[in-house]
């Protein structure tokens, strides 16, 4: 019987910790969003690494206390070791390795993308469960890809962005419109008041073979639309219309591309949408329709588990531990680590 797992997530601007029981029950979780980044309009790595370092010891202690688990009761310690910003990855994985050595338990190096990919398998999260295989759409500030998930460590990237990620497009449009950081929630809020047909923005790659994405041209189209407007502060209604038209273009694009991905993976019975952009309710609704049309179930983790968190890291570690996998203590953090990398496959 496995014992509880402590996990750390620090690959970007969230510091997160969680303790899960061996059966996947969440005993405690904490996420600290590094708000100081907002002043800079984004993630600044030096600050990110320093802040992770500052917050982690206290967060780990509090999470263990809340879970009612003492360090010596742990069965393993896990951390996201990539992909992400190297400073934060070094802090998180170094801390986890130290805990693993001190408590004499295995260390598990988790690919952050795998943690997102396996989240729907958390017990009780998706009605009817999430048996393999399923299609994962991972959409966040840094990622935008369709992945065939056929087992733990078994991933095939069906397509992805050829330029900007969807979340990045939201952030850049928000910045352009003076809506602050992070941009997604602000754009979504204003889009509700806007007319999505006011601006005819392009739907890049729509109808094209495969399921690649492109959002760079859409961003440029918004820049051009803003350039034609009278100088000075934009009226709220204009900003709302721009947001609504932009969001509609993203929605149409995602729907088309995911439709193609489902056709490329006829064995899929379930579409899972995860990543920070999956928090956008309008986009969720559109993707739900795509799944319904294709006759597959739809699932999106609850909002708090869509963004970066440590619950997913702990769960991925449990999935791997069950298959007899643990990592060597010299497992190095990796800024780039695609899901279909050779070393993701679990070998006996």
């Amino acid at each position: 019987m496995l014992r509880p797992v402590l996990a750390i997530e620090s690959s970007c601007d969230e510091t997160a910790t969680a303790v899960l029981a061996a059966d996947g029950r969440i005993l405690a979780e904490a996420v600290l969003s590094q708000r100081e980044h907002m002043a800079f309009g984004g993630v600044v790595p030096e600050i990110a690494a320093r802040a992770h370092l500052e917050h982690l010891p206290g967060m780990v202690a509090r999470t263990l206390e809340t879970a009612g688990v003492s360090p010596r009761d742990l069965g393993a310690v896990a951390a996201s070791t990539g992909p992400g910003l190297i400073g934060g990855l070094i802090v998180g994985s170094g801390f986890a390795k130290g805990m693993a050595i001190a408590t004499g338990v295995p260390f598990v190096a988790i690919n952050h993308l795998e943690a997102h990919a396996l989240t729907p398998r958390l017990p009780g999260l998706v009605e009817g469960g999430a048996p393999f295989p399923y299609l994962l759409l991972l959409v966040s500030g840094g990622h935008c890809q369709c992945v065939e998930v056929s087992g733990v460590g078994q991933y095939r990237r069906l397509g992805g962005t050829i330029d900007d990620a969807a979340g990045e497009a939201f952030d850049k449009v928000a910045k352009l419109l003076g809506l602050g950081w992070p941009g997604g929630p602000a754009v979504e809020r204003l889009a509700r008041e806007g007319d999505a047909r006011r601006y005819a923005f392009p739907r890049p790659l729509l109808g094209r073979k495969g399921c690649d994405f492109s959002f760079s041209g859409l961003k440029t189209a918004v820049v051009h639309a803003v350039a034609t407007l009278p100088a000075g502060a934009l009226p709220r209604q204009v900003v709302a219309d721009l947001c609504a038209s932009f969001q509609a273009a993203v929605a149409d694009t995602l729907a088309d591309r995911v439709g193609h991905a489902l056709a490329m993976m006829p064995q899929a019975k379930l579409l899972v949408v995860s990543g920070g952009v999956a928090a956008n309710q309008a986009l969720r609704a559109v993707l739900e329709q795509v799944a319904a049309k294709a006759g597959v179930r739809f699932a999106a983790p609850p909002l708090r588990l869509c963004g970066d968190n440590a619950v997913m890291v702990a769960w991925a570690a449990l999935e791997r531990l069950r298959l007899g996998y643990a990592s060597p203590l010299d497992a190095a953090p990796k800024p780039r680590w695609p899901l279909d990398a050779e070393d993701m496959v679990i070998r006996p």
């Binding site: 800079f40 309009g41 984004g42 993630v43 600044v44 790595p45 992909p83 992400g84 910003l85 500030g141 840094g142 990622h143 992805g160 962005t161 050829i162 330029d163 900007d164 990620a165 990045e168 952030d171 850049k172 760079s216 800024p335 780039r336």
Partner: peptide, 27 residues
């Protein structure tokens, strides 16, 4: 892919390594 999120992406090319930075999010 855009390096806006990761800030830098590195490539092996015939000219040797090339590093593509996007400093948009730095101050």
């Amino acid at each position: 892919p855009s390096p806006s999120f990761t800030l830098v992406q590195s490539y092996d090319t015939s000219l040797g390594p090339v590093h593509h930075f996007d400093l948009w999010r730095l101050d």
